[in-house]
Amino acid sequence: MTIRSRREAVTFRHPFRIRGIERLLPAGTYDVVTDEEAIEGLSFPAYRRVATMITVPSENVRGSMEMVSIGSIDLANAQAADASAVND
């Protein structure tokens, strides 16, 4: 089983919530890591998403970060809500 990871920076312009994280997160840029595994037996390379994680400020230790598993649809919903939020 081959697994690949993809990292991207996602920016939120407003404080936001995302399912799976029980607190309001501040606006800013967050690292998102997506793990995908190869689908074996095909005549072309194909991958399926197996995990999506976001790095967020730690709730307990000031200045540290934690990586939290989230759903890719929940991330997309949070991004859509941020994009449609009224600018201050």
Rank of each mutant, 00 (worst) to 15 (best):
S64A: 06
N60D: 12
S5A: 14
V86Q: 11
S43Y: 00
P26L: 00
S58N: 14
D82G: 10
S69G: 15
R4C: 03
A85L: 10
I73G: 10
R13W: 08
G28D: 01
Y30I: 05
G28T: 04
R19Q: 15
E37F: 04
T52S: 06
A51L: 10
E40A: 12
R62I: 03
R23T: 10
G41F: 02
E40L: 09
D82A: 14
T11E: 11
I3P: 06
P15C: 04
A38D: 01
R13E: 09
N77R: 15
M65T: 14
L25E: 07
L75G: 05
R17F: 09
G71H: 13
I73K: 14
I3N: 10
V33F: 11
R23E: 13
F16P: 00
I54R: 02
Q79P: 02
G71N: 15
T11V: 07
S64P: 03
N60I: 08
S64V: 06
M67W: 08
D88Q: 04
A83P: 11
G63K: 01
M53K: 14
V32C: 07
S58P: 02
L25I: 05
V61P: 00
E37N: 10
E37P: 00
G71T: 14
S64C: 02
D82N: 14
L25V: 05
L24K: 06
D74R: 07
E22V: 09
M67D: 14
N77V: 14
R48D: 01
A46N: 02
I73W: 09
A51R: 12
N60P: 02
A46D: 00
A83C: 11
I18C: 04
A27I: 03
T34V: 12
F44C: 00
A9G: 11
V68C: 13
D74A: 13
A80C: 09
D88Y: 01
V61D: 08
N87E: 12
A76M: 11
V50E: 07
M1R: 13
M65W: 09
A78L: 10
H14I: 09
R23Y: 12
E37C: 10
D82H: 07
S72F: 11
A38E: 07
R4T: 00
R6D: 08
F16L: 04
I3L: 10
T2M: 13
A46T: 05
G63S: 01
R13N: 11
D74W: 09
I54G: 03
R23D: 07
P15M: 00
E36K: 03
H14C: 05
M1C: 12
I70S: 03
V50Q: 09
D35E: 10
R19M: 15
R49W: 08
A83L: 15
I3K: 14
P26H: 00
R7S: 11
L24H: 07
V68L: 14
R19D: 15
D88E: 08
L75F: 03
A9D: 13
S69Y: 14
A51H: 06
V56E: 02
V86P: 03
G41L: 02
T55H: 06
A76E: 12
T52G: 03
A27E: 06
N77S: 13
R13C: 05
T52F: 04
